[in-house]
C-alpha cells in the first residue's frame, strides 16, 4: 500500500511538473539548445513595450524582447533575444510601435537611414546613435491614444474653421453674393453691347479717316501744282516749303490711318475673344441662377454647409467619448 501511494504521488508530481515545463516552453516560445543572439537598443521611452514583445525584421518575427532596464542619462535599454545567424542591417535601428489596437507593441529592426521620414523620429534616433558602441539606437512611434489626441485637436481646428465660415457666410452674405452675381451679369451684358457699338464706330471712323487722308493727299497735290505755278511765277521758294510741309503732314496722316486700321483689326479679334468669354460667363451665371452645380448649391442651399458642420461636431463628440470611455468601444473582459 505504501509503495503504491509513493508511485501514484510520484507520477502525479512528474506529470504536473512536465505540464508546467512544457506549457511554459510552448507558450513562451522558448528555444532550447540553441544560442540566441542578444542585442541591445537604447530608447528615451519605450511606450507600451514589455518583455515578450515580438521583434521583427522586414516583417518577419525574429525574436522577442528579453529584458528592459533603466540606464544612465535618462535612457532605457532593451535587450532583444534574436534568432542566431540573422542577416541584420549594417546600421540597425529599433522602432517600437503599437502592433494592434489592444495594447500589443512590437519592435521593428530597420536600417538607420531608412528608419523613418519623420523628423522627430530621426532626431531621436540620431541622438541615440551618437553614443555609439554595440547598442542600437531606438525610438517609439506614437500609440493610438496619442493619435486619437491629435485627431481630436484636428477636429477642434476644423470645428473652429467651420464656426468662422458660419460667421462669414450667414444668410445675408449669401443674399449679397446672389445680388453681386446679378449685377455682374448685367454689367457683362452692357459691356457686350458697348463693345459691339464701339467696334462699329471705330470701323466708321477709320473709313472716314482713310477717305479724308486720300482727299487731303489729292488736295495737297493740286495745291502743290498750283503753288509750283505760283512759285515759278514768284521764284521766291517760300511756297515750295509750305507745300513740302503739307506733304509730310499728309504722309504722317496716312501712316496714322494705317495704324488705326491695324488697331481696328486687333479690336475685332479681341471682340470675338471677349464675346466668347462673355458667353462662358453668361452660361456659368445661368447655371448658378438655375440651381445647378456645387457653386449654385453653396450659394443657394445652406444644407450642405450645415451638414458638414454637424458632421464635424459629431466627430469631435465621438473622439471625446472614445477618450473618456474607451471601454464602450473596445471591450476586452476576462470574465
Amino acid at each position: 500500500m505504501k509503495r503504491s501511494n509513493e508511485f501514484a504521488v510520484g507520477i502525479t508530481v512528474l506529470v504536473a511538473a512536465a505540464v508546467v515545463v512544457i506549457g511554459a516552453i510552448a507558450l513562451g516560445q522558448l528555444r532550447l539548445g540553441r544560442g540566441d543572439d542578444i542585442r541591445t537598443a537604447r530608447f528615451r521611452s519605450i511606450g507600451g513595450l514589455g518583455p515578450g514583445a515580438s521583434v521583427t525584421l522586414r516583417g518577419v518575427k525574429v525574436g522577442r524582447v528579453a529584458e528592459i532596464r533603466i540606464a544612465a542619462d535618462d535612457w532605457v535599454e532593451v535587450d532583444f533575444r534574436l534568432k542566431p545567424n540573422l542577416e541584420l542591417p549594417d546600421q540597425p535601428a529599433a522602432i517600437a510601435a503599437p502592433a494592434t489596437l489592444f495594447g500589443e507593441w512590437r519592435v521593428n529592426i530597420l536600417p538607420l537611414d531608412d528608419a523613418s521620414d519623420d523628423r522627430g523620429v530621426q532626431a531621436l534616433l540620431a541622438e541615440a546613435s551618437t553614443i555609439g558602441g554595440a547598442v542600437w539606437p531606438g525610438t517609439t512611434l506614437p500609440d493610438i491614444g496619442e493619435l486619437t489626441l491629435q485627431a481630436s485637436r484636428i477636429a477642434g481646428d476644423i470645428g473652429s474653421i467651420t464656426n468662422r465660415i458660419e460667421g462669414a457666410l450667414d444668410s445675408n452674405a449669401v443674399a449679397d453674393v446672389k445680388a453681386s452675381l446679378k449685377d455682374l451679369r448685367a454689367t457683362v451684358v452692357r459691356l457686350h453691347n458697348l463693345a459691339n457699338a464701339q467696334s462699329e464706330n471705330l470701323t466708321k471712323l477709320t473709313g472716314n479717316m482713310a477717305k479724308t487722308s486720300d482727299e487731303v493727299d489729292l488736295a495737297s497735290r493740286r495745291f502743290n501744282t498750283v503753288m509750283g505755278r505760283v512759285d515759278s511765277a514768284t521764284m521766291n521758294g517760300q511756297l515750295q516749303d509750305l507745300v513740302s510741309t503739307t506733304r509730310q503732314t499728309s504722309t504722317a496722316l496716312r501712316d496714322m490711318t494705317a495704324d488705326m486700321q491695324a488697331i481696328v483689326r486687333d479690336v475685332k479679334d479681341r471682340r470675338s475673344s471677349l464675346v466668347r468669354v462673355l458667353e462662358a460667363s453668361d452660361s456659368l451665371l445661368t447655371r448658378v441662377q438655375s440651381g445647378r452645380g456645387t457653386l449654385s448649391l453653396l450659394a443657394s442651399d445652406s444644407a450642405l454647409y450645415y451638414e458638414a458642420t454637424s458632421t464635424v461636431r459629431q466627430l469631435r463628440q465621438l473622439l471625446a467619448d472614445i477618450q473618456a470611455n474607451p471601454r464602450r468601444y473596445f471591450r476586452f473582459s476576462v470574465f
Partner: peptide
C-alpha cells in the same frame, strides 16, 4: 504540496 500539482494539471486540461 499537492494542490499546485493538481492545479497545474487542471490548467493544462482547461487550456
Amino acid at each position: 504540496l499537492m494542490f499546485p500539482m493538481v492545479t497545474a494539471l487542471a490548467m493544462a486540461v482547461g487550456l
